[in-house]
């Protein structure tokens, strides 16, 4: 299981990569492995406003539908166009080609509410007990 050090993590198993005022978001390796084969991803349109801890889309495995939660507030600057045709990228490469959205942040101080890699590892260990 991979837990890249340079990322921030949410308690909903999203990862966040910060570049200036933009937060790139995807789901973690742990999340994709719990879901199983991802067959469908539904993402918002560019320009949509999203609010921290509210849903911004869904990811579906063969068996289950799971909501995706925005880790920060802002507006959608970009969505990964590849996931429409190749949702399996979420399984094969969750931290790179399987990214989902980029959010132009309203309030970067919200990042302080997220977990760092060690906190997230502990969180996953607790949850998978």
């Amino acid at each position: 299981m991979e837990f890249p050090k340079h990322l921030k993590y949410s308690r909903e198993h999203e990862w966040v990569k910060v570049e200036g005022n933009v937060a790139q978001v995807g789901i973690t390796d742990y999340a994709q492995s719990e879901l199983g084969d991802v067959v469908y991803v539904e993402l918002p349109e560019v320009g949509t406003d999203v609010e921290a801890n509210n849903t911004f889309g869904v990811v579906e495995s063969v068996k289950a539908v799971s909501d995706l939660f925005a880790p920060v507030t802002g507006s959608i600057a970009e969505v990964n166009p590849q996931l429409e045709e190749e949702p399996e990228l979420v399984n094969s490469d969750p931290y790179e080609d399987g990214w989902m959205i980029k959010i132009e942040m309203n309030d970067p101080s919200e990042l302080n509410d997220l977990l760092d890699v060690d906190e997230y590892k502990t969180f996953v260990e607790e949850e998978s007990k």
């Binding site: 199983g36 084969d37 067959v39 495995s61 063969v62 068996k63």
Partner: peptide, 8 residues
């Protein structure tokens, strides 16, 4: 529910 993956 699965061993290696539903699709496989």
């Amino acid at each position: 529910v699965q061993y290696t993956g539903v699709i496989e």
